[in-house]
Amino acid sequence: MTYPITRRLAIAAAASIGLLSAGPVAAEGWTPERPVEMVIMAGTGGGADRLARLFQSIIQKENLSTMPILPVNKGGGSGAEALRYLADNEGENHLIMATLNSYYTTPLRTDIGVDIEEFTPIARMALDTFVLWVNADSDIETLDDYVEAVKASGGTWKMGGTGTGQEDSLVTAMLENEFGISVTYVPFSGGGDVARNLVGGHIDSSVNNPSEALGFYQAGELRPIAAFTPERISAFPDTPTMGELGHDLVYWMQRSFVAPKGMAPEAVAYYTEMFENLSQSQEWQTYTAEKALMADFLTGEELQAYFLEEREKHADLLNAMGEGS
């Protein structure tokens, strides 16, 4: 009597194996044995956090991973906390980290005993863009107007941005160098806060990422002056790039994933495939188009080369600002 049951079970087992291998999660060899920790280098609610949680939700919705991905915020010390955590978990196969540009700048600015060259690159998902914004009520329409207004203010022009020694202040320093102007840089705790203060008239300009200012732009509260991109951003077709205006100013915010030193190659392959599938998902395509993100997928050695090159650039930038040590 036990025979049919056993056979049924065997068929069921075979069928489920078949289902598994037919699904998009069919990585050969290695699959995670427990939930995967996704460390985020920033606090909750910011641009990086929102994006990381978006990735998690798409992975879950599209069933791209056999095990759930658990986002954990370790934003302390401009990401120093997250970097240390990654360094302390050498050889861990169930840990990945969502990065932003503080991936380079934080270890350059404070000695936390972390060398990013040792980490395992997984995938770069996108490059976020920067745009120069003013309040829509101001008279400033063009970059020339802007430079003139800043010069006329005699150094009291208020430029708001997120933190110090991070992306916004670097972009501000680039502007100051290029145009020979000087502004008063006012640091805020997040991009949304900067946008609100610009709309409220408490600061005079910002270099927000498009996603942070988009809502106010659509409501006609903020005006983009110029984009720090090589080509025009599709969401703002009428906004010229700095390059078009004759100024070689380009700056990106990378949105990538890395893993600890010594992760097994099979595990690296698994996550790489997961993010590749993610980058092809409909939702991600829609999001990047709407939020003016440049989806730019890069993996492996090429990504590592990119990281190291960017680290060099940021070391120069920080030195120029007198912040590097």
Partner: peptide, 22 residues
């Protein structure tokens, strides 16, 4: 507040743009 920050994140995930146009 931190909680509304999470709610905001949720809205972004659902494809809504919080802000003056919502």
């Amino acid at each position: 507040s931190p909680t509304t920050a999470l709610l905001l994140g949720g809205m972004v995930m659902w494809g809504l743009v919080p802000g003056p146009m919502l």
